[in-house]
C-alpha cells in the first residue's frame, strides 16, 4: 500500500459541462495533500469522487489501492467531511457520536468522547445551535473516530474565524500524527495549505495545473528579473509560468529542472503563495505553461 490517490485521465461531466477533466495524479500515502483552486475549478468534484460519493464519467481512480465506491471495506478506510461540515441540526452532539458508533465498524468511542470533552463541546447540545467552529470540530471528531486511513475534507474551515481555524488545524495535525492519517483537503487559503500540507495540487478550470511535493515545487520554481527579453528564447527545461514586462525589464516566474546560470537574470526564491497565484492566473501569451505533473 503505497498510493494515497492514483488517477488516470479522470473526468466528470454534468450534461455538456466537464467539472473535471484529464485529471492524472500519483500521490504517495502518508501525505497531507492540499487541493487549491478558484471556486468551480473542480475541487469538490474530485474529492467527492475520491470519497465514493460521485461516479466519474471518464478515466480511472484508485484510493489507497481500491476503487472508491467498491464496498464497506473501502468506505471504512476513507473518512469524508463534506463542505461546510454539515451536521443533523435536530440531533445532539451525543446523538452524532452514537450514529458514528453504529455506522462505522472501526469506531473509536473513547477517542471521540475525549476529543468532544477537550474541545469543550456539550454532548447534550443540539448541533443546530453550534457555531461554525464548533460544528467543524464535531465533524473532525467524527472523521477521526471513524479511524480511517485517509481523511478527505472539503473546505473544512472556509467559513470559520481565524482562531477556530487554527484550533481545527491543530486538531487535524494532531490526529494525523497520532494515527498516521493521510489527509486530502481543499482550501482557498494558501497560508493554511503552506502550514499543514506537504503535497500540493492546483486545479484551474477543471484541469490540474500543477501537482507535486511542496519542497520540490519550491526548489524548482524561481523568480527571474532582468533586461527585457522574449521568453521564447529561454533554454530547454525552463517552463514559464507567468511573465510580465515593463519597457526595459522582464520578470518571469518559471519552473526549471536545473539551476539557472544565465548572468543576465537576478534569480530569487518564490514563496508558495506567489507560486500558487502564478498558476491560478490565466495562461500567458508566452506559450503553453507547464501543464504536466511534477514528480
Amino acid at each position: 500500500m503505497t498510493t494515497l490517490l492514483r488517477t488516470r485521465e479522470l473526468g466528470k461531466r454534468y450534461r455538456r459541462r466537464w467539472a473535471l477533466r484529464d485529471c492524472t495524479l500519483d500521490i504517495p500515502a502518508g501525505r497531507i495533500v492540499g487541493l487549491v483552486g478558484p471556486n468551480g475549478a473542480g475541487k469538490s468534484t474530485l474529492l467527492n469522487i475520491a470519497a465514493g460519493q460521485l461516479a466519474p464519467s471518464a478515466g480511472s481512480i484508485e484510493v489507497l489501492g481500491g476503487h472508491p465506491a467498491s464496498g464497506p471495506a473501502q468506505l471504512a478506510k476513507v473518512g469524508f467531511v463534506a463542505q461546510d461540515t454539515p451536521a443533523y441540526a435536530a440531533l445532539t452532539v451525543a446523538d452524532h457520536l452514537r450514529l458514528g458508533a453504529r455506522l462505522n465498524p472501526r469506531w473509536d468511542a473513547a477517542a471521540a468522547r475525549n476529543r468532544i470533552e477537550r474541545v469543550g463541546l456539550d454532548p447534550a447540545q443540539r448541533t443546530g445551535t453550534l457555531s461554525g467552529g464548533q460544528r467543524a470540530q464535531l465533524a473532525l471528531t467524527l472523521g477521526v473516530a471513524k479511524r480511517p486511513e485517509l481523511l478527505i475534507l472539503d473546505e473544512p474551515v472556509a467559513a470559520v474565524d481565524p482562531l477556530a481555524r487554527r484550533e481545527f488545524l491543530q486538531g487535524l495535525m494532531e490526529a494525523a500524527a497520532e494515527y498516521e492519517l493521510s489527509v486530502l483537503l481543499s482550501s482557498h487559503l494558501v497560508t493554511d495549505v503552506e502550514r499543514v500540507c506537504d503535497y500540493l495540487v492546483v486545479l484551474v478550470d477543471s484541469h490540474v495545473r500543477v501537482a507535486g511535493d511542496v519542497d520540490e515545487l519550491l526548489s524548482s520554481h524561481h523568480r527571474l528579473t532582468g533586461p527585457r527579453r522574449d521568453p521564447g528564447t529561454l533554454p530547454a527545461g525552463q517552463h514559464v509560468v507567468s511573465v510580465s514586462h515593463t519597457e526595459r525589464q522582464t520578470t518571469l516566474l518559471l519552473r526549471a529542472e536545473s539551476p539557472i546560470h544565465d548572468p543576465a537574470w537576478t534569480v530569487s526564491r518564490v514563496g508558495l503563495e506567489d507560486l500558487v497565484l502564478a498558476y491560478l492566473s490565466p495562461p500567458t501569451a508566452a506559450g503553453r505553461p507547464a501543464l504536466e505533473v511534477l514528480r
Partner: peptide, 8 residues
C-alpha cells in the same frame, strides 16, 4: 503539531 498546527 498540536501546538503549531503544522505537518507532522
Amino acid at each position: 503539531v498540536a501546538r503549531l498546527a503544522i505537518n507532522p
